[in-house]
Each structure stands twice: as structure tokens, then as C-alpha cells.
Design a protein around this nucleic acid. Structure first.
Lengths: 152, 152
DNA sequence: ACTAAATAGTGCGATATCGAACCATATGGA
DNA sequence: TCCATATGGTTCGATATCGCACTATTTAGT
């Protein structure tokens, strides 16, 4: 391994970490009090992919421990944004359905971000950002499969 | 704002978020039990930049609330990795110094990551990664100054 | 010099994340 | 069928993050 490789990886992940932190703070500042990205992400996923999935499937999709997903879903359910129903095919399991209130919440959250994105798009060229995404997606895929390899 | 801009920003930050999560898990798996990236990052900063800085300066450098930094530093101090001394120029304040033990800890942490980086560098070209870093740094700077503008 | 406002750090409470242990149910092999 | 093992989900305990409020000190305005 060349000398600079370690530094390159460190520098890359460092930038990633900072951007993640700043973007999360930006988003969470727009969400109603007490709601976090974790909540929004689940709602968004239930709409963009599909709802009716089990908590475990969601936990895997977001790469979080199942206990974390239990907790996140409990918060969403308490707020009436999702509904938990028994899984007809497995009595141990449940299915997560988004409610109309949940859909509205997600749509409003996105609407609330529009001014931020507008402001930022004046200083960050969206085209340039778009060009980064495929490379980032590749890195993400490698990390993901690497994790599978390590974890079993 | 063109139609796709919102989706582009969302997609970008989504990839960032996933990579951050995966890389954090990867790193933390190599740190001794009970230590997190937050601990490592502070030690690394104290060495790479300089030590003797105040907790508040560190909190700003890492974009975390000062209470979070207090907590992180308390953990590091308890483990003997940093030392807190009074700030000679301000009786309200303190200076954070890394200890020899702290330096050793940081060096060992980096050494422990070498196998991971070696394995990953077989699947992620470091040169290509390096080319992404300047663009990411620009995004980071914009987000950072945007935050300053919003927060004062 | 005196006082009001700002600043550095901490204590506390609320919530998030996550691993270990646990219960209920499902699955696979004898 | 019966039992060992695996799986889905929750509970519990430990620690992290972070906002609010507080103390001590500093700074700025008069």
C-alpha cells in the first residue's frame, strides 16, 4: 500500500463525516421539534420504496441495529405517522404502514427544505454535485459489501 | 430552481449519510471497547493541529455543542488520554493537553485501521478517492459558512 | 470603578443509539 | 412428531448527544 493511501482514506472519510454532520443539522433544524433524520428517512423510505415492510427489513435497509429501528418506529407510531399491523405470514413479525398523516408530514418536511436547497444551490452547483453521486455510490457499495463480508 | 435540483441534493446527502454510517461503524469496530470516533477525532486533532486549545475551540472545530465536548473530554481525561489544565489567560477557561498515553492510543488506533484500508484500497482506488476530496471540501466549506450565516 | 452584557464551562434532563439478554414463533433434521 | 436451532421483535442498561439553565469570569459601556 503506497504511503499516501492511508491519508487519502482518512481525508476522504473526514470530509464525509463533516458534511454529514452539517447536513443533518441543517435538515433537523427544519423538522418539527423532537423529530430527527431517522424519523424522516423511514417515512421517506416507506413512500419511495414501499410500505408494509417488516421492522427488520427496514433496520437492514438503514444499516441500524434492530433495537434502534424498534425505537424509531415506536416514535413514529406514537406520533401517528406509521401504523404497525401483524404480519399475516409470521406471527412473530409486524408490518409497517405509513398513515396519511405520515405522508403529509414527509411532504411538508420536504417543502420546508426547499428554501435551504435554493439558497445552497446558488453556491453549490447541482450539476457538479450530481457528478459526484455515482462515485460516492460506488464507495458506498464497496463499504456495504465489505461489511457483509466481515459480519456474515 | 430546476426540478431536479432538490432530488440531486437529496441523493447526494443520502449517499454521504450512508457512507458516514458505514465508515464510522468500520472505525469504531477497531477502537477499544467504549471508545468512539468522537474520542479518536479529538486526539487526532490535538496532534495534527495542536494541543493546549480550549474546550470551546475544540467544540467549534468539530461543530458540536460545547456540552458534547465537555462530555467527550471528560471521557478522554478519565482514560488518561488528555489532561485539563487551567487557562493561564482566562480563569473561566481550560486548556486541553494530550498525554503520552493519548498519543500512543491514537497511533495504535491508526495502526489498527491499516488492514482495513489495505483491504478496501483493493476495491476503492485511492487516486479516484483523492480526486473527490477537493469537491467535497468545497461543499463542506459552503455548508459551514452557510451555517455561520444562519446561526450568527 | 461600576454595572450590564457576553463568554467559558458544567450539571441536568430528555432522547437516541446500540449491545446483551429475553420471549415467542418458525424452521429443519432426526 | 419432537426437539434443537434460528429468527423477529422487545426490554433493559449503558453511553452519547444536545438544549436549557446556571455559575464564574471577562469585557464593554458609562
Amino acid at each position: 500500500m503506497p504511503d499516501r493511501t492511508l491519508e487519502t482514506f482518512f481525508g476522504f472519510f473526514n470530509e464525509i463525516g463533516i458534511i454529514e454532520q452539517l447536513s443533518r443539522a441543517l435538515m433537523e433544524a427544519r423538522l418539527p421539534d423532537g423529530f430527527l433524520i431517522s424519523h424522516f428517512s423511514v417515512l421517506n423510505h416507506l413512500i419511495r420504496v414501499k410500505d408494509g415492510q417488516t421492522p427488520l427489513v427496514l433496520a437492514r435497509a438503514f444499516q441500524v441495529p434492530k433495537t434502534t429501528m424498534t425505537h424509531t418506529l415506536a416514535g413514529l407510531e406514537k406520533a401517528g405517522l406509521v401504523e404497525m399491523r401483524p404480519n399475516p405470514g409470521d406471527k412473530r413479525s409486524k408490518c409497517v404502514w405509513i398513515t396519511p398523516h405520515g405522508r403529509a408530514f414527509r411532504d411538508q418536511a420536504i417543502a420546508g427544505l426547499v428554501p435551504d436547497v435554493q439558497r445552497l444551490s446558488g453556491r453549490i452547483d447541482a450539476q457538479r454535485l450530481a457528478k459526484l453521486v455515482p462515485a460516492l455510490a460506488e464507495v458506498r457499495k464497496v463499504l456495504d459489501s465489505d461489511r457483509d463480508g466481515r459480519a456474515g
